[in-house]
Amino acid sequence: MKKYGIWLAGIALIVWTVMPLLWALLATSKDTSEVYANNFWPEQFSLQAWGDLFQLDGFWRFAFNSLYVTTVSTVIAVAISIVAAYAFARYAFKWRHILLLFILVPRLVPRVALIVPLYLMFSKVGLIDTYTVIIVLYVASAVPLATWTLIGFIGAIPREIEEASAIDGASLLRRLWTIVLPLTIPGLVTVTIVSFVESWNEFPFALAFLQDTEMRTLPYQLFSLESSLGLIDWPLISAFAIFTMLPILVLYLRFEKSIVSGMTAGAVK
C-alpha cells in the first residue's frame, strides 16, 4: 500500500511538471486549425510550426541577440566574480564584511523594481536601446550570486596547497591559474550556467530598455509575437517557446548535479 502511494505521488509530480510542456510540444506537430479540434495526439503529423518559426521575420536576429548578450554578460560576470570571490575568501582585509554585505543585499531586491530609476539613469546618458545597457545589467544581476557561490568553493580549497607553491616561488597570478582555477572548476561550471540561464531568460530589463525591434531578445519577441500575429498561431508560439527552452534544458540536463548542489548551497545561506 505504502509502496503504491509513493509511486502515485511520483506520477503526480511527473504529470504536473510535464503536462503543460507536453501539450505545447504536441501543438507544434499539429496543424494550426487542428489545435482547436481537441485532439490529444495530432491526426496529421506536421512540422509546419517549426518551419514557420525558422522563417519568422528576424527570428535568427533575435536568437543572435539573445546568445550575444547572454554570452558576453556571463563571461564578464564570472570573471569579475572570481576575482572578487578570491579576495573575499582568502584575505581578511579591512571592510571585508561590509563590502560582502553590500554585494549580497541587492540580490534581495527584485529586478523589476529597479526599472524606473534605471530608465532615468540610462536615458540621461543616452544608453537606452543598446546592447551595453542589457549586458551591464545582466552582469550586475549575476555578480552577487556568482561571487557568493564562488567564495564557498574557493574557501574550500586547502590553504596549504597554495602556500606550498608560494614557498616554491609561484606568484599570485601563477597560483590563481595553476591551483585555484582548476580546483574551482565545479564552482565555475555552476555559476556560469546559473548566470547564463538567468540572462537567457531575462525579460523585464529587455522589455524596458530595448525599443528597436532589431534589438529584441527571444523572450521579448515571444512576448510581442501574439500581438503582431492577429489570430493567435498556437503551434508557432508553442514552437517558439520550446525553442527558447532548448539550450537551457541541454545545459541543465548535462550539468544537473553541480547546478543543483550549487543552487541549494546558495539559497540556504
Binding site: 569579475i80 573575499f88 582585509f93 555578480v143
Partner: peptide
C-alpha cells in the same frame, strides 16, 4: 588594498546598477 582592488569591480557594478537605483 590588493584585495579591495580585486573586489572593487564587483562592488562597483552592484553598487551603481543595483544599490544606487534603490
Amino acid at each position: 588594498w590588493g584585495p579591495i582592488a580585486a573586489a572593487l569591480p564587483a562592488v562597483l557594478i552592484v553598487g551603481v546598477f543595483l544599490a544606487y537605483p534603490i
